[in-house]
């Protein structure tokens, strides 16, 4: 047993971190807001292997596993990289051109009855829309949906389009594949959420060392210290469990994949939302401004909470597993 990132995995992480910090600096957020998702940057992400990571070499992929994928998504999450990252990654091997970033694939999980309006992230830009239903994976012609961009999405870096109705589409794969995509999607989304939990901790932690009030750094006040300590615990819980979910998906003999993946989505979601909120609190009035990053992180964590199963849904799944 060696539950630590290998040297290769660490190198992948370092490379991606340098890439996202260079390309998605906080200074660029206002500019990104105007057009969060551009085809050139999508091509760059494809070039880095974000979508083809787990594909075979014959398909131009890197033949890596869920662990590497979750590590990669953790880094993308740290800088709120825009785009239907998880759906396009899952579509690799299922929708032509997804792996290489030529086809922009988004998606919706419609396997449970719901009266929610049909809102699709990046809907107006998609080439293909995957829909997960109880009986399988479907592809819907995105352009034919008549989607309209909503003027004010919650997350300024995640455009949302509204569709009047959702046609059934063409069936691409069976129920088992749909379930696999749901689980892999939940694990990857947990990776994104982990990145948020970590970044908001780091960001608040740095600020607390430099911001002074009453002639001392605010980090010397216990109320701030203790918030940071709790954020640290949350971030660590999210990290190790997201990795455990990835390992279990790669090597199902090492645990109960359903339970581990659902647990990871619960804990990562909880950690990201908690840490983003506390980050705003630790920044005080500046945390409440549009100018600083914390609000973007809180808003994105709400978007991700509503992707691939909510905390409530996954918590219930874990409970059912316990009672089984």
């Amino acid at each position: 047993m060696d539950f630590q990132l290998s040297e290769d995995q660490q190198a992948l992480q370092a490379g991606l971190r340098a890439f996202v910090e260079g390309n998605y600096s906080f200074e660029r957020f206002p500019e990104l807001e105007k057009a969060p998702l551009r085809r050139e940057t999508w091509a760059e992400l494809a070039e880095m292997g974000i979508f083809s990571l787990r594909q075979g070499e014959a398909e131009g992929g890197l033949e890596l596993g869920m662990v590497e994928a979750v590590v990669a998504f953790q880094e993308l999450g740290r800088r709120l990289v825009p785009g239907p990252l998880v759906w396009s990654h899952l579509a690799a091997g299922l929708v032509e051109g997804a792996a290489l970033g030529e086809t922009l694939v988004g998606g919706l999980d419609a396997s449970r009855g719901s009266s929610d309006p049909i809102l699709v992230e990046y809907g107006d830009q998609l080439d293909a829309l995957l829909v997960l239903r109880r009986d399988g994976v479907y592809q819907v012609d995105a352009a034919g949906l008549g989607m309209e961009l909503v003027a004010t999405p919650l997350d300024p870096l995640t455009p949302i389009a509204h569709a009047p109705a959702l046609p059934r589409g063409d069936k691409l794969a069976d129920a088992e594949t749909a379930q696999r995509l749901r689980d892999e999607g939940a694990a990857l989304t947990a990776g994104l959420l982990l990145g948020i939990a970590e970044l908001t901790l780091d960001y608040a932690n740095e600020y607390a060392k430099t911001r002074e009030q009453f002639d001392r750094p605010i980090g010397s006040f216990q109320a701030i210290k203790h918030m940071l300590a709790d954020m640290y615990v949350k971030a660590q819980q999210a990290r190790h469990l997201a990795y455990a979910a990835a390992v279990t998906l790669d090597d199902p003999d090492t645990g109960d994949a359903i339970r581990t993946v659902s647990s990871a989505k619960v804990v990562a979601g909880e950690s990201a939302m908690h840490n983003a909120r506390k980050c705003i609190q630790i920044y005080g009035g500046m945390g409440y401004t549009w100018e600083l990053p914390p609000h973007y992180y809180l808003k994105r964590s709400f978007v991700l909470e509503n992707a691939f199963g909510t905390i409530a849904q996954h918590a219930e799944r874990v409970a059912d597993r316990l009672a089984a």
């Binding site: 190790h240 455990a244 659902s262 990871a264 619960v266 409530a312 219930e316």
Partner: peptide, 27 residues
């Protein structure tokens, strides 16, 4: 049910954390 599931998820996270911490110490 959700609360039980939520608590169980947190137990899982500590379990994973302990394994990570032990692996680190071993190294």
């Amino acid at each position: 049910r959700r609360e039980i599931g939520h608590l169980s998820a947190e137990v899982e996270s500590l379990w994973a954390w302990i394994k990570a911490s032990i692996s680190e110490t071993a190294k």
